[in-house]
Design a protein around this nucleic acid. Structure first.
Lengths: 214, 214, 214, 214
DNA sequence: GATGAATGAGTGTTCATTCAT
DNA sequence: CATGAATGAACACTCATTCAT
């Protein structure tokens, strides 16, 4: 059994590695070509596998896609929750910390946020197991909630003006995704420069000033 | 002669109407399905024409797409320029006016901004007459410049903090496109409500407060 | 009536001119692009008419095609018959005369011979009025017969070896069409030179020597 | 390893078989319908495959076409070179041998020679890898050169009149392609008979007599 | 577990042809 | 008589997906 067990574990590990490998390849391709244009064969080639093998690890092309998004959202909601729970920082500092956090997320997967939108717009979701959809919503909700609670903290301390916290969370989210969109379109012509960070930093500064009570 | 002329004019009008008709149909479909998923046949059906007829008015599927974008950008850049040139309003009031302006633009064509991005990412542009591309860039540039000048006015009057005007224009743009993105994804589940206006209004308020000198 | 009659005549003339105009345009286009690639719209544009107008003068795209071929064949068979009936020339001289004749035909319409073949190979003929088909065959037959009779003359005078005249006529025809084919393919790379005449002249010389009795 | 190797070899063989299968089907269809009229679906059906499968073995419809032509030209140029190098036959006998050779070629692929012309005329070549084009020209040139050398031999031995060898080679080529053209058009009405051989035999006889010195 | 081979269901686009005016 | 507008029917080609091995 020891042997069987170890083998099983190895197999599991191998499987996970393969999945990761495919996701990584898909991420790159969805990034450069977009979801519809990138073909399964492209992904397979990039992952050094046969197209058929992809279907051993994912039900669908859409499935790959959603898995990718879930990955990111998981990372994002974890980071935001941790930020919210952070004891040693005040609300202002936490907003300051968002700069770094968003930059990390962007580096983790630059285009996925935009893709995320696209997924919802397409009918791709209709062919997906419903559990994935709810998982998607759950994580997105969790992220926004963590964000909102940071504002609650600020308002409780009298540091922030009494805007609805949910709205503030939405706006932060909006600025982030908007900036990514904008960054990507700029990159078309200037592929080397990093426009995102300075711009987003300013935006968050202004935002902080804008919600801070005098 | 009068007759011939009138006929010619009528024909021109009819042609314009058809073009408009097709663009309208395409707008709806690109909106609901996205560019790649919406087929030319879909558009034709929506416009109550045969697929072949589409090609009497547009060279390409891409051509429809770009025409749609140019339409919007033209409208947008005109409105922004007018706002900048407006004599009877101070910079703060102009920023206030952006609320209504953006809402108008959104109603004019809700999803086109996102599509715009996608267009640049695809290789659709490679098959297009290069003049269209430059037209695209020209209009986008003009819009941002008008915006930036409003901030210049504000800074000249000592009302706005000395952030670089270009950066401010970018941030406004970012907030707007981000908000559209976010609105659209919300509409998936709540198709009736208008989330955009209140949220964008708050965002612009905060933004104005954030850049205003004490 | 005199007036009515004159008008009718004028109309007839006008019609013929239009037909000719269209045929001329079609000839040029079938020549440069080939039958399948040249579109009816191309022909219409070249003839300075609307596509629909073409159908007032011809039943079909195929109909244009066949009319073109009939034109040539008529010319060809007339010339060959005249040559056969020519009193003042001996058989050798008549074969010599073929050089000039073929060159004329080629100038009249360089590619039509090849097109002719293609027509037969396609199923274009099936949609045609059967009278045209028989007309086609009749003219082709007449041409070959005139040719054969020239050889009969030569054999009767003891100048030509006793090859079957029909076979000889076929061979002359073969050399001619083959040479046109070959010429055309050469023209692809050397569009200016006239390869046909010298080569066909040599071929006919050799042919004459080959069939002449010692 | 032996196993892997054998499998690889089998797979290669299978692939070659499929290619051959498709080429065979295409040959038949281009023959009966012509290149433009024969559809890829036709070819697929004839080859008992799906249209999509065709594209696993050929890049293009044009690619099929050119492959077919190259096949023939290769065969032809090899045979002609062998004939030229043949030690045990004099020039007259070699020309005699052309009869059989041409008949073989015709049986190998009756219509391809005509198609070859068409290929050059179309713009199909523009989408092809340029190496194929040069391969095409190389083989055609090689064939004609072998032919010309046979005449050089004959002239060196004083058996042939001093016509330019290149011209003679051209004429032989012309007679052959012309005869194929002619044969095909005859076959339309008499599909069973073989007109080509007797006529081409006579033509070559006359040709040989025509170039032989007295 | 992995893959090479195969395909069904589209997709954008073209074009000969028709018809109301 | 002439035409602008429209379309039905194809066609070459693609791609996500399956399955025997």
């Amino acid at each position: 059994m020891g042997i069987a067990e170890r083998r099983e574990r190895e197999r599991d590990l191998q499987q996970k590695r393969r999945r990761e490998q495919i996701l990584e390849a898909a991420k790159r391709l969805f990034h450069t070509k977009g979801f519809t244009v990138a073909t399964v064969e492209d992904i397979a080639k990039e992952a050094e596998l046969s197209p058929a093998a992809i279907y051993l690890y994912f039900k669908n092309k859409d499935d790959i896609y959603v898995s990718l998004n879930l990955q990111l959202l998981e990372y994002l909601s974890d980071r935001l929750e941790a930020l919210y729970l952070e004891k040693d920082a005040g609300p202002d500092q936490k907003i300051e910390a968002l700069k770094a956090l968003f930059h990390d997320i962007y580096n983790f997967d630059p285009l996925i946020l935009i893709n995320l939108f696209h997924l919802q717009a397409s009918d791709g979701l209709k062919t997906l197991p419903p559990e994935r959809l709810s998982q998607l919503n759950r994580l997105a909700g969790k992220s926004l909630r963590s964000l909102a609670r940071i504002f609650d903290q600020g308002k409780a301390e009298g540091r922030f003006a009494p805007y609805p916290s949910i709205a503030l969370a939405d706006i932060v989210w909006i600025m982030f995704t908007g900036a990514v969109l904008w960054e990507e379109s700029k990159r078309m012509t200037n592929p080397d420069k990093d426009f995102l960070k300075p711009t987003l930093d300013i935006a968050l500064d202004i935002f902080r000033r804008g919600i801070t009570t005098p």
